Amino acid sequence: MSWQPDGPGVLRLPSGRLVRGRGLRAPRPPGPPATYAVHLLGRRPPELSGDVTWLRWPDFWLPADTATARAVLLDAWRRAAGERVEVACGGGRGRTGTALACLAVLDGVPPADAVAYVRRHYHRRAVETPWQQRYVRRFPAAR
């Protein structure tokens, strides 16, 4: 019960896990909905339906609580082994790209290479700020 590998916004991690990134301001892509979603937003959205975790993460910045962010992203990575996991922010590039790069680190991509990996396989402008890039380089790999 995973994504189609060639679906819009779908990132294939080295392990074969598929995760979809997207912008919440755009219409939801066609096809089945996510079974689990992580929304990276500065403020709690007015309504969360389905299996969604809100992670407080202001636009162009970093997660408000890095320990919580790591726990949520580790859970998303684990769930991506058998579920349709989606990571989304407003535009689908900066925060989403940063989170996807962290998932790549959890999947075994060296932290120094994770931003380039996501830019190559998800979106060329993913991970928008120098501090987001630094966050990925310092993100601890899975144990």
Rank of each mutant, 00 (worst) to 15 (best):
M1I: 15
W3C: 08
Q4K: 03
P5D: 11
G7K: 03
P8F: 15
L13G: 08
L13S: 04
P14E: 07
R17H: 09
L18Y: 10
R20E: 05
R20G: 06
G21P: 04
G21M: 05
G23F: 10
L24K: 00
R25M: 03
R25A: 06
R28K: 01
P29V: 13
P33C: 00
P33K: 01
A34Q: 03
T35F: 07
Y36L: 05
A37H: 04
A37P: 07
A37Q: 13
V38L: 01
V38W: 00
H39Q: 14
L41H: 01
G42L: 02
G42I: 04
G42D: 10
R44L: 07
P45I: 13
D51S: 10
D51H: 06
D51Q: 09
V52T: 13
V52G: 09
W54F: 07
R56S: 14
W57I: 01
P58N: 03
D59H: 10
F60D: 10
L62C: 03
L62D: 09
P63Y: 11
D65C: 08
D65Q: 06
T68W: 12
A69I: 15
R70F: 06
R70D: 13
A71G: 12
L73E: 11
D75Q: 12
A76G: 04
W77N: 11
R78L: 14
R79A: 10
R79Q: 08
A81E: 15
A81L: 12
A81T: 15
E83C: 04
R84V: 10
R84C: 05
V85G: 09
A88M: 07
C89V: 02
G90R: 11
R95I: 13
G97K: 05
G97N: 10
A101I: 14
A101T: 12
C102W: 14
L103W: 05
A104D: 11
V105W: 01
D107F: 10
G108N: 02
V109D: 03
P110W: 12
P111I: 07
D113R: 06
A114F: 10
A114T: 13
A116E: 15
A116D: 15
V118A: 00
R119P: 01
R120V: 06
R120S: 11
H121N: 12
H121A: 03
Y122V: 01
Y122F: 15
R125D: 14
A126K: 04
V127Y: 08
V127C: 05
V127K: 00
T129Y: 05
P130Y: 06
P130H: 04
P130T: 07
V136I: 07
R137N: 02
R137A: 08
F139R: 00
F139K: 00
F139D: 00
A141P: 13
A142D: 13
R143W: 14
R143N: 02
